[in-house]
């Protein structure tokens, strides 16, 4: 099953990164209902839509690629039971909030179980740097941002990832992170300010380097 990813339209024209994968016309909630009624293909579509997001979100939370794969797997397996038991109620919020909340709780459980201190993970490092100088520069910048994100408090990190990559609204993020909207606003703002600070320093460093 091949599903092309498409980018969600930016709401203020300033956020091209927010996106929702999947080209099937059914909404997430419709797919969940179809799966509950026995359509296994609907579950496959949900995995296609949310597989990469679950892996990424878990990876940013636990900072361990292998553990993130286990968490993503557990999340979908758990989703099977929850949906079959009628545990998802669309009236209480979108599926995305419900699902990412589940991923986050599984991540917290795994981290507690392993009792491992969060590390600046190798899995968050960029791919091997190859290519043109501009591309290398872009990779370096991306690596800088990810390093900064990795140092953020857990829920700030979760909030900015869900916003930047999965395009969740503040309300949806609040549901996913068991918080209120005002708090989510603050978390995202703080995360941006931290990223901006590091970004500005990197730019200043680049300018000095090129000026020499």
């Amino acid at each position: 099953m091949v599903v092309r990813l498409r980018f969600r339209q930016d709401r203020a024209g300033l956020k091209p990164a927010a996106r929702t994968p999947g080209t099937v016309s059914a909404t997430d909630e419709e797919l969940v209902e179809r799966y509950r009624l026995g359509d296994d293909d609907a579950f496959e579509w949900l995995v296609e839509r949310y597989g990469a997001s679950a892996l990424r979100f878990a990876r940013y939370l636990v900072r361990d690629g292998h553990l993130a794969e286990e968490i993503a797997q557990d999340a979908f397996v758990k989703l099977v039971g929850v949906v079959r038991d009628g545990g998802f109620d669309p009236a209480r919020g979108r599926f995305a909030s419900f699902f990412f909340r589940m991923v986050r709780h599984l991540s917290i459980d795994r981290m507690r179980a392993r009792s491992r201190a969060p590390q600046i993970a190798e899995d968050l490092d960029p791919q091997e740097s190859v290519g043109a100088p501009d591309l290398l520069l872009q990779k370096e910048r991306c690596a800088q941002v990810r390093e900064i994100v990795a140092t953020l408090p857990e829920r700030e990190r979760a909030a900015i990832v869900l916003r930047e990559f999965d395009g969740l609204s503040y309300k949806e993020i609040a549901l996913a992170l068991d918080a209120n909207i005002e708090t989510v606003k603050t978390w995202i703002f703080r995360a941006r300010r931290r990223i901006q600070g590091s970004w500005s320093e990197a730019h200043a460093e680049e300018s000095r380097t090129h000026g020499m």
Binding site: L14, Q138, V149, I195
Partner: peptide
């Protein structure tokens, strides 16, 4: 800067 950082982050995020 926020926009540039966001774009750089998203562009190179390994999928």
């Amino acid at each position: 800067q926020w926009t540039a950082a966001s774009q750089a982050w998203a562009a190179e995020e390994p999928e």
